[in-house]
Design a protein around this nucleic acid. Structure first.
Length: 572
DNA sequence: GCCGTTTTCGGCCCGACTGTTTTCAGTCG
């Protein structure tokens, strides 16, 4: 899929045109198109072939033409021309925090600087100071920004960000600041987050920002005003705090949760109603008509409360206006976990311990799904081992009250598409999840054929962590996603949404496509110990971001209808 | 460059902080 590639090109085109002083709204249009492409759940090439590009909001005649040009020729004239006559390190320079297009332009015009290395040298040599708009402090900040960039402060995984923010919130509460909540992309539960945003309400904003900037985990104060402050922690995380009066807390929650694109759309909508929305409230003229809580803000604009996980400007505002907002799946809807490991392979805890922990959560069922022999290093089971495990699960199921245990497996998909256990064994199990754990670098055609073969095996109920990506560590393997999704839809094979914050695989965007194609999704933790059963929240949030409702999620079903679905699909 | 319960032309979100400014531009979110 060229979706991301095209998204990157339009984003870069926007940066370059902004640098060249092009009409800012045109620049904005390219940025919007870039985001629309990145969020697209279908293959852009398919849309182009079927002449449906213009159906995507943000893509009009001109951009559709550019997309087609790129898909057909591998080039985009506008993009390549725009790059002419710009510094070759422009994009890297623009990525330096605090350094924007205007300043880069001034520096380039006066000193002919083209790259970050030249920029750094000139700054150290004192050549920048004295240029228009550049004083000593500004130069100092640029050098600091370059250092920060070098440290390659990557986006943080949601699973790492949430504990960090919860720790800060807890400390602020301990200091007597009661109304303080996480906001930003973290509240929207994006798979990774850049900055961590925290919002507080109180009359004494100076005291609150001071408390924040003096927390022990703060390594550096990046900015501090009366109502907002930014710090960098010792772990290298940037945390932003915003303080608002209590009467504005809801409006501020809304504003500070974003996304930026969602907020822009809301304010646009407000304007049409002769209203103004900002972080302090909704205003008609001077009069504040909403803002104490989030629901009132949306209501004032004629909308129902939109869940934070949907606020990405991916059609949620249109859906809300039409009264067709999805009733997204909630953690409480989940009735069981269909992929967990035990000490029969590489898990830490026993069948009974996992069952007890699942029961304590309130689950109706749990599928024991250990590894197979190909993963010998992880204690993968061969035929004999699996037969024994099957008996052990049946015995435990009879013994343990209050929760049903399913005999499952996470069977390996070999490089040639065959499975790691014979059908004879698979047929005896309640649920079969098939996953790729080897030969990740296969060419796309082989990997596609491999996944298609697994989907076509009538014993395979679910495909585990479909793309194999590990956030920040390993790219998804190369394969024809759309072809695989189509085949899964045809064979009524479910897809796993692996809830582990390192995976979150399938992604929110793929969830949305699965929903459109009528593919059932199983949200599983892949827990290797009892604590990891709690990771379900990350999977559910990702499912929400993919607009999944309870009916789209296999493990929201009560035990009986789950079993009926499993038996039914094998009889087809 | 996109888009339409003001509009096929004329709009396009809104505010805080910083540094360099004698009244504001640049950057960020």
């Amino acid at each position: 899929m060229k979706n991301r590639e095209l998204a990157r090109i339009f984003s870069e085109l926007a940066d370059v045109l902004e640098y060249k002083g092009e009409n800012p709204f045109k620049v904005g249009a390219y940025r919007r198109a870039s985001r629309a492409l990145a969020d697209l759940s279908e293959d852009v090439a398919v849309l182009a072939r079927e002449d449906r590009l213009r159906e995507v909001p943000g893509i009009g005649e001109a951009i559709a033409k550019k997309i087609k040009e790129y898909l057909e020729t591998g080039h985009m004239k506008r993009y390549e021309e725009a790059l002419q006559g710009t510094p070759k390190g422009l994009l890297e320079m623009l990525a330096i925090p605090g350094l924007g297009p205007k300043t880069v332009a001034v520096i380039n015009q006066h000193l002919g600087i083209e790259t970050v290395a030249e920029l750094e040298e000139a700054a150290r040599a004192g050549k920048l100071e004295g240029l228009p708009g550049l004083g000593a402090r500004k130069v100092e900040n640029i050098l600091h920004g370059i250092t920060l960039r070098k440290q390659a402060s990557q986006r943080v995984r949601l699973g790492d960000a949430i504990p960090a923010v919860e720790a800060i919130v807890a400390q602020l509460r301990a200091m007597g600041i009661e109304r303080v909540v996480p906001a930003g992309s973290l509240r929207r539960m994006r798979e990774t987050v850049g900055d961590l945003d925290i919002l507080a309400a109180g009359e004494d904003s100076v005291r609150i920002t001071k408390a924040f900037t003096s927390l022990p985990m703060v390594a550096e104060v990046l900015a501090a005003g009366e109502t907002r402050a930014s710090v960098r922690t010792h772990e290298g995380l940037q945390v932003d705090l915003r303080v608002v009066p209590p009467a504005s807390f809801g409006a501020a929650c809304q504003y500070f949760t974003g996304s930026k694109a969602h907020n822009i759309r809301l304010r646009d909508l407000a304007k049409r109603h002769n209203l103004k929305v900002n972080e302090y409230g909704v205003f008609r003229g001077e009069k504040m008509i909403a803002g104490a809580d989030e629901e009132s803000v949306y209501r004032a604009l004629g909308l129902p409360l939109i869940p934070p996980t949907l606020r990405e400007d991916r059609g949620e505002i249109e859906a809300a206006l039409a009264g067709q907002l999805p009733r997204v799946v909630e953690l409480e809807d989940i009735r069981g976990d269909l992929h967990v490991h035990t000490d029969w392979s590489d898990g830490r805890d026993s069948i009974e311990q996992m069952a007890a922990a699942a029961k304590a959560i309130g689950y109706q069922y749990l599928a024991i799904s250990d590894h197979t022999r190909a993963l010998k290093v992880f204690g993968g089971l061969d035929e004999t081992g699996m037969e024994k495990l099957l008996r052990a699960v049946r015995e435990a199921d009879a013994r343990v009250k209050g929760i049903r245990l399913l005999a499952g497996v996470e069977v390996d998909i070999h490089a040639d598409g065959s499975l790691d256990l014979p059908d004879r064994i698979l047929a005896k199990l309640d649920i079969v999840t098939a996953s790729v754990h080897s030969a990740f670098k296969q060419p796309a055609e082989k990997m596609t054929a491999r996944l298609l073969a697994a989907i076509r095996n009538p014993h395979v109920d679910v495909i585990g962590h479909l793309t194999g990506r590990l956030l920040g560590e390993r790219e998804a393997y190369d394969f024809d996603l759309e072809a695989v999704l189509q085949e899964a839809a045809r064979h009524h094979t479910a897809l796993e949404l692996n809830a582990h914050p390192l995976r979150l695989d399938i992604t929110d965007v793929v969830c949305r496509r699965a929903r459109d194609l009528g593919i059932m999704v199983a949200i599983n933790t892949d827990a290797h110990n009892t604590e990891q059963l709690q990771l379900m929240r990350f999977g559910v949030a990702t499912a929400q971001r993919g607009w999944l409702e309870a009916a789209h999620v296999l493990n929201t079903r009560p035990f009986r209808t789950l079993m009926a679905w499993l038996r039914g699909r094998r009889c087809r």
